[in-house]
Write a protein that binds this DNA or RNA. Sequence first.
DNA 1: ATGGTAGACCATCTA
Length: 264
Amino acid sequence: MKLATWNINSLKVRLPQVLDWLAANPVDALCLQELKLPDEKFPLEAFTEIGYQANWAGQKTYNGVAVITRGAGTDVQRNLPAYDDHQQRIIATTLDSPMGDIRVISAYCPNGQSIGSDKYEYKLEWFKALRSWLRDELQRYPRLAILGDYNVAPKDEDVHDPLKWIGDVLVSEPEREAFGSLLELGLSDAFRQFEQEEKSFTWWDYRRYAFRRNAGLRIDHVLLSQALQPYCTACVIDKAPRANEQPSDHVPVIATLDFAAALA
DNA sequence: ATGGTAGACCATCTA
C-alpha cells in the first residue's frame, strides 16, 4: 500500500500534472493540499476516468484539501469537529486494507505568515485543536496516517540554511513544539525512520532560483501511528515534478506500507 | 531592509 501527499498550489493549474503523476505513481491514496477552488469546481470526473475516487473540502481562492483514493472511502470527515474554522484544512477518510481499516487524513496546516502575527497565533491555536482531535481519532482508528503540508521544518537538518532561518516562521521553536506535540501522541515522522540524503526538502520558494540552489525546507510530512509504523518499508520525496513546466512549489512525499509479512 | 515569483482575481492577499 502506498500513501502520498502533495501540496499542488491550485488544482486548476496542476490537474494535468496530478493526473500524469498518478499514472506514473499509482498510489492507493494521494492527499492534496491548496486546491484553491470551491467544492463545485472539483474535477471529480478527471479522477474517476483514471480509476480513482475522491473526497474533498474545497474553498474559493485559498486552502482546500482532498484525498484521492483507489477504493471508496468511508466515514468522511471535513475539518476539525471542535474547532470553528471557515478555512478548509482537513479531510479524513477510512480505507480498507488487508490489516483492516486505515484512517487517512490530508492536512493543510496554517502557514503563520510571520512571527507574532494574527496568522501565527492562529497557526498555534490550530495545531492545538489538531492535536486534541488526533488524540480522539487515534482511539477510534489505531491504524492512522496523517499526511500533508505542516508548514513546519521539524529540525535544523530540514532547513537548507538554518542560520539564515533562525527564529523565522516555519522553523520557530513554538511551531516545532506544536509539531512535536503531534509526535507525542505516538505518531512518527516516516521520512526519518530511514536513511536519507542530506538536504532533502519538499518545498522551495518560487523566488531567487531556490530550487536550482536547493534552498528548500522539509515541511511536508507523513506521520504514522504506532500501529502502522512497523509496516512502513520506505518513505521518499519525489523531486521530479518540481522540474515540470509550471510546477507547484512543493513536491510529493510517498510512504510504502507492506503488510505481506504480517499476513503470511 | 527590501524584494524576488506564483496563483487567485482585476487591487491586493496569501504563500
